[in-house]
Design a protein around this nucleic acid. Sequence first.
DNA 1: AGTGAGAATTGGAATTATTCCAAGGAATTT
DNA 2: AAATTCCTTGGAATAATTCCAATTCTCACT
Lengths: 144, 144
Amino acid sequence: MSTTPGTLPEALAQRLADSGLRSTPQREIVYSVLLAKRDHPTADEVFARVKTDLPTISLATVYNCLETLVQCNLVRSVNFERGPTRYCPNLRPHAHFHDEQSGSTHDIDLPPELLEQVKHVLPAGYDAKSIEITFRGKAQPGAR
Amino acid sequence: MSTTPGTLPEALAQRLADSGLRSTPQREIVYSVLLAKRDHPTADEVFARVKTDLPTISLATVYNCLETLVQCNLVRSVNFERGPTRYCPNLRPHAHFHDEQSGSTHDIDLPPELLEQVKHVLPAGYDAKSIEITFRGKAQPGAR
DNA sequence: AGTGAGAATTGGAATTATTCCAAGGAATTT
DNA sequence: AAATTCCTTGGAATAATTCCAATTCTCACT
């Protein structure tokens, strides 16, 4: 009664309903495609994979479904920030804080020992040349 | 003898020369624009600012100069990875390791306590809803 | 079962960000 | 100063994403 084949779509339906949204074949298949091969596909790649099951789906729908899944916290988008690349000349080790209200980005200094600790989470065989840490949230207007 | 007005362009010239590149007015002004206002401007914004000093510069040159400065390690690009956004359904706290050779992206599990530590670098007034950590480098083919 | 309202999908056009390319200009080497 | 190489320019091309109007679907209510 709990591991029937219908379970996954139902869990998805529940999550969508929590956000006042509907479960649709398109959303289910997009989600299942992401679960089936966890290689961080692009929207275009998802589009290609979904089409084998649902040849009539449109790219716009794939974008819509992905956006929906991200908003329901079922999926994360890896390039968190859409839009143009930004540049900074601060070369000291620092993270970025992206203030969602104002859209501005602040530098956050990072103690070198923290960076070391972060590096230590890498399993053997991984050699990181750079680490990028980005926070998103609210910054009090007072904070710079 | 060391803080003359010519110092900054010369330092830039030195760095460029180290990479076998030339110092040009365009590169100097693009760099000075980045130093003058550290608000992580986009290429378009840099373009607009540079034009006040150098009205004939082209957008392509701004992109070229920014790329050059990034390659000389004088500037960092904040959206490290160009190209399409990628999606992953892994909701556990994890970082991403981007293998530059293969172009593939691996999930790296993050212990919750590390995330806490990372959060603690935020000064008062900053409230982070999410943290994104991305490594770039080489992964041994053996590593998954 | 039928209807109306709201939600979702579709295809295509539009926009945005970035890259490419060919031609001209400037600096460096011979 | 000729040759070579590097750089800049403008415009075209491409890639990623968003927008939009029309249609279709779904749900709730009769």
